[in-house]
């Protein structure tokens, strides 16, 4: 049976941009920011493409946002996803709204697997995958990782780290836990969220970037999906961490030891 995998491609601020709180403390300064696909989502797209390359099937990518997020959907399509679903929503949305939309999309699409980033690097909530699995009543494996290093031959040959059982009914997931790795078997359908060491996403080939522009992109809205995305969570303030104090120079080792012992209490 060919696989159908749903993946996500959230548009987030590029972590290479200078990100700082605005003077009013209500959010970040948006001017001059660059945007990219959430890197955990990108790892999810990569893993889904590897599974489909091995087992056949299709990868459907979804994103919620204004038209700007077409850029991220097209990137996933250029990487190799088959088609895109755009939930057109320009206002604020919280993790419940996102998980609600994804649940409805899963009900429509009936994928075998939903592979999501474990969190997005903008608000770092780490909740959507868990809500989605709970509401759908699916199995879930969070923080999927891999056993070998990212320099391994398996990684270079783009072998999937997630493994399907012979009957295609279960997926084996290695996940990061405190101090080691845990292996789970989940009955499909399942939600898997990706950690940083699952794979190295591919570069998009130029011919594929051009082809991606003509791949199907379906437009939906939260209302059409029947989801009320009114946020139940508001950010009340945002501030930068306190600036680090300047360092000092000490004249000799004895003074250093004294400071470490009596001021820093480090030794």
């Amino acid at each position: 049976m060919p696989l159908k995998i749903l993946v996500t491609a959230k548009r987030v601020e590029d972590s290479e941009s200078k990100i700082r709180a605005n003077p009013a403390g209500t959010g970040i300064v948006l001017e001059g920011l660059k945007y990219k696909m959430n890197p955990f989502d990108e790892i999810g797209v990569e893993e889904a493409l590897r599974l489909v390359a091995k087992h056949g099937g299709e990868v459907v990518v979804a994103s919620i946002g204004s038209k700007d997020c077409h850029e991220q959907l097209r990137q996933a399509l250029a990487m190799g996803a088959t088609r895109a679903i755009w939930v057109n929503h320009a206002g604020p949305i919280d993790q419940l709204g996102v998980a609600g939309c994804l649940m409805k999309i899963c009900e429509r699409e009936k994928p075998n697997l939903a592979i999501l980033g474990k969190q997005s690097i903008d608000d770092d909530q780490n909740q959507v995958g868990q809500y989605l699995a709970e509401w759908l009543g699916w199995s879930q494996a969070t923080f999927a990782s891999k056993e070998e290093s990212l320099d391994s031959d398996a990684e270079k040959s783009k072998t999937p780290a997630l493994k399907l059982t012979a009957d295609g009914a279960w997926v084996t997931v290695v996940r990061e836990v405190d101090g080691g790795l845990e292996t789970l078997e989940c009955k499909l359908p399942a939600v898997v969220t990706t950690d940083l060491r699952l794979n190295q996403p591919r570069f998009s080939k130029l011919p594929d970037i051009m082809k991606a522009k003509t791949k199907p992109l379906e437009e939906l809205t939260p209302a059409a999906l029947g989801v009320d995305v009114t946020p139940q969570l508001t950010v009340t303030s945002m501030k930068a961490p306190p600036a680090r104090k300047a360092g000092i120079k000490v004249p000799d080792v004895a003074a250093l030891v004294d400071k470490l012992k009596n001021e820093a209490k480090a030794i």
């Binding site: 660059k34 890197p39 998009s204 080939k205 130029l206 051009m210």
Partner: peptide, 25 residues
């Protein structure tokens, strides 16, 4: 850019090519 890039591939000027999608790439 599309026209320029298509020309490269259609006329066999390059074997393959990638475009960085973000600052990290």
């Amino acid at each position: 850019l599309d026209g320029w890039l298509s020309g490269l591939f259609d006329e066999g000027a390059v074997q393959d090519g990638v475009l960085a999608q973000d600052e990290g790439q």
